[in-house]
Design a protein around this nucleic acid. Sequence first.
DNA 1: AATGAATGAGCGTTCATTCAT
DNA 2: GATGAATGAACGCTCATTCAT
Lengths: 241, 241, 241, 241
Amino acid sequence: MITSTRKERERLEREAKILDLARSMLRQVGYHGLSMDRIAAEMEYSKGTIYQHFPNKEEIILALANQALEQRLGMFQQAATWSPKSRERMAGIGAAAEEFVERYPLHFAVEQIIRSASMWEKTSEERRKFMRSCDQRCLQIVSGVVRDGVAQDDLALPANTTPEDLVFGLWSLNFGAYTVITSSDTLEENGIANPIATLRRSQNLLLDGYGWQPLSSEVDYDQVMDQVRAEVFGDEQPNTP
Amino acid sequence: MITSTRKERERLEREAKILDLARSMLRQVGYHGLSMDRIAAEMEYSKGTIYQHFPNKEEIILALANQALEQRLGMFQQAATWSPKSRERMAGIGAAAEEFVERYPLHFAVEQIIRSASMWEKTSEERRKFMRSCDQRCLQIVSGVVRDGVAQDDLALPANTTPEDLVFGLWSLNFGAYTVITSSDTLEENGIANPIATLRRSQNLLLDGYGWQPLSSEVDYDQVMDQVRAEVFGDEQPNTP
Amino acid sequence: MITSTRKERERLEREAKILDLARSMLRQVGYHGLSMDRIAAEMEYSKGTIYQHFPNKEEIILALANQALEQRLGMFQQAATWSPKSRERMAGIGAAAEEFVERYPLHFAVEQIIRSASMWEKTSEERRKFMRSCDQRCLQIVSGVVRDGVAQDDLALPANTTPEDLVFGLWSLNFGAYTVITSSDTLEENGIANPIATLRRSQNLLLDGYGWQPLSSEVDYDQVMDQVRAEVFGDEQPNTP
Amino acid sequence: MITSTRKERERLEREAKILDLARSMLRQVGYHGLSMDRIAAEMEYSKGTIYQHFPNKEEIILALANQALEQRLGMFQQAATWSPKSRERMAGIGAAAEEFVERYPLHFAVEQIIRSASMWEKTSEERRKFMRSCDQRCLQIVSGVVRDGVAQDDLALPANTTPEDLVFGLWSLNFGAYTVITSSDTLEENGIANPIATLRRSQNLLLDGYGWQPLSSEVDYDQVMDQVRAEVFGDEQPNTP
DNA sequence: AATGAATGAGCGTTCATTCAT
DNA sequence: GATGAATGAACGCTCATTCAT
C-alpha cells in the first residue's frame, strides 16, 4: 500500500513537472514550437517516458488547458460567495479574473493559445468535454451572480436578454483586454498608461449601463476589488496605484 | 522605364496571387497545413520563385496580417468620416469592425494567429514596423473620433483618462467578443443566442457610461450601424434581425 | 519435489497462454502489430514476466512455429498409420495436410512468416534445432510411407531417385498451392474455382505418374481423403462438394 | 529538350538504383528490416530525396514486385511462342520459370516476401491493380498454351476442369519448389540431391497425368528445357548435370 | 519471482530552405 | 529569373529491452 502510494505520488509529481515545463515552453515557443522532443530534452526523462504519461502531444496541451480552467473556476467560486451584495460579488469576480492573470500568467497564456489554435483534432473527446464543462461552470457561476442580482432587485435585465448575455459582454471585455495587454508592448507609448484601471472602469460602466445597483458612482468598486484581492486572495499590495 | 514598370507590376501581381493562395490555404488546412511546397504546387510558379518574393514562410504570414490590418484601416477610415456627429461616427467604426470580421473572416483569423504565434525572430524589421504602424493608425483613427467628440462637447473624459483609454476598452470588447465567438461552438446552447447584438449593446452601454451624447436611449444606434453597413459598405441586408 | 512440479506446471501453463495469445494477435494484427507491450497488456502478467519465459520476441515467434510444426507432425503420424495400403496412407497424409491448414490456419500463417522473415540471429540454437528436427521428422514420416510402398511393391522408384525426392514434389505442390491460395484473392474470377480439388488431383496425378498402385483411375482417392478427415480427424462434413 | 531528357534519364537511373538497393536489402534483412533510413544511408542520397521518388515505403516494395512480375511476364512471353508443339511450349515455360529464378534470384525473393507478408495496406490501388494484372497476364499466357494444346488435340481436359486449373497445379508446384529450395539449406543431407531435376520430373508427370501428348516417356523434355534455356535465353551451360 | 517505469534507437514522414542548372 | 532536386533536421510516435524495486 505504502509503495503504491509512493509510486502514485511520484507519478503525479512527474506529470506535474512535465506540464509545468510544457506550459512555460508553450509561452516561449508557441503552439507550433512545442515539441515532444524538446519537452523530453528539457527534462531529465526520455521521450518514451513522456509518452507513458501522455498518449500524444495534444493531450498535453489539453491537460494544460484543463489546469488553467480549473484554476480559474476555483478562484471564481471563491469570489462568487464573498459578499452578500450582488454587485460586490460581481466586482469580486472581476478581481478574481485579475488575480488569475497576474498570479498565473502562464495559465492565461495557455488559454489564449488554446482558444485561437486550430488543433482540435486528435485530443480525446473525454478531455475536451471536461474543458467545455469547465467553461460552462465558470459561465454559470457568473451568470448565477447575475440571477441573484435580478432576484434581489439590484438589477433588471432588458427584454430578450439573458444573464448569460450580460456575462458574455464582461467575458469578452476581460479576455480581450488581457489579450491586447499581453500581445502589445507599445500600449503605454500609445497613450494607454494603465490598461488595468481602464478595464476596471469599462466593466463598471457596463454594469452601470445595465442599471446594476449600487452604481459605480455610489460605491468605489476599485476599492472593493482591491479588498477582495487582499482578503480573499491574500494580496499584500492593493492593485490600484 | 516602361519595361521595369511592367516587370514591377507583374511582380506585384504575383505577390498578390501568392498571398491570396496562402490565405485561402490557411483557412482550409490551418497554420499547420500551410506549406511552401503546397503553395508552390498550387501556383504555376516554382518554390524557388516564391522564395524570391518572400525570404521565408513567416514573412508570408506577416504580409497576410499586414493586408488584413490595411484592409481594416481602410474600412475604419471610411467609417470615421461618415457622419458629422461624433457618436454616430463612433457607431460607424463599430459597424466597420463588424463588417470586417464578417466580410473577411480569414483576415481576422490571420490576425489571431499572428497575435498568438511566436515567430518574430525571422521576420523583417520593415514588415514588423508596417504592422505596428497599421495598429497605431487604427488606434489613432478611433481616438481621433473620441477627440472630436470631446472637442464638440459631446463627451467629457474623466480625469486621468486619455481618448486612447476609451478606445482600449472598445477594442478589448470587440476583439474579445469575436475571439470568443470564433472559438466557442456552444454559445447558443449556453444562453447566448445573439452575441453580435450583445456586443453592440455592450459597446453602446460603455459609450453611454462615458456620457457620450446622444445616449443610446435617445438614438437607435443599432439602426445607425445597419445604415452604415448598408450605405458605406454596401450591405444589402441589415444585420439586426 | 511436489512444489517444483507445481511450479513447473504453472510455468508451462503460462507459457502456453502467452503463445496462444501471441498467435491470435498475429492473426488479428499481423506480424507488424505483434508487440511485447500488447501481449503483456492482454495478459494478467507484466512485460518483465514474459521476458522470463522468452528472452526476446523472435523466440516467441519461433516457439509458435515449433508448435505448428509439432501439430502437423502429430497429424502426419496419425495419418501415416491409418491404412494398411501404402497409397491410401499417402492419401491420408494429403488429407492431414489439408486438415492442418483448414483447422489451424494460424499455424500455417506462422510457418509462412517464419520461412520468409530473417530473424535467425537472435533465436536460440536449441529452438532452431527443434524446428529442423520437426521438419525432418515430417519428411521422414512421408518418405517412410514411400519406402513402405516400395517394399510392398506398390511402387518402383526411377533410377537416381530417392523416396525423399518424391516427397519433395508433393511437399512443393502442397506448400505452393496453399501459399497461392492464401495470397491471391482473385483465384475464382481467374477460372480457378476449386483450388483444393485441383490440388488433390495434382497430387494424385503425380503419384500415378510414379506408378504408385492402385492408380487414381482405379480408386477414388477423393473419397478416401474425405474418409480420413472424417474418421481420423473427426470432420463432420466431407470436403468434396 | 536535351536537358529535360537528361534529367529524366538521371531520374530513372536514380530510381533504378534505389530499387536495386532496396531489392538486395529486402533479401538480406527481410520485409521488416527494410527501412527508409537504411535505404537512404546506403545510398549517397538523403531520406528526403528517396521520398521524392517514392511517396512511401510500401510503394518501393510494390515497385519491386512489379519489376519482378514484369520480368517474368516477358520471359514467359518469349517461351510461349518458342515451338509449334504445345507440350514443348509448356516445357519452354517451365524452362523460363527456372531461368527466372536463377537469373534473377532477388526478383524471386521479392515475390516470395510479397506473397506472404501482411502489408497490403497503404500501397496505391493503382499499382496493386498493375500487380494483379501482371499475375493475370502470366496466368493467361500459360493457360493459353493449354488451350492451344486442347485445340490441337494434344490434350483433353477432364470435366469441370479449366485450363487455369491445370496451370494452378503447375504454378503451385513451381512456386512451392523454389520456396522450399530457397528456404531450406538441408535438402541435400535429407536425401534431396537434385531438387531442380525432381521439379522437372514432377511437372512432366503432372502433364503426363493430364494426358498431354507427347508424353514425357516419348520425348526427353529435360533436353528440350535445356535447349530452350540455351537458345531462347542464351544459357551457355545446360542445366541438367 | 514479478513488476512496470525508463530508456533510446528507430521508424515513416514532412518541409523550409538552398543552389546548381 | 526561374526551376525543382536535394538536403537534413525535425517531427510525432513505437517498442524491444533493461533493471531497480
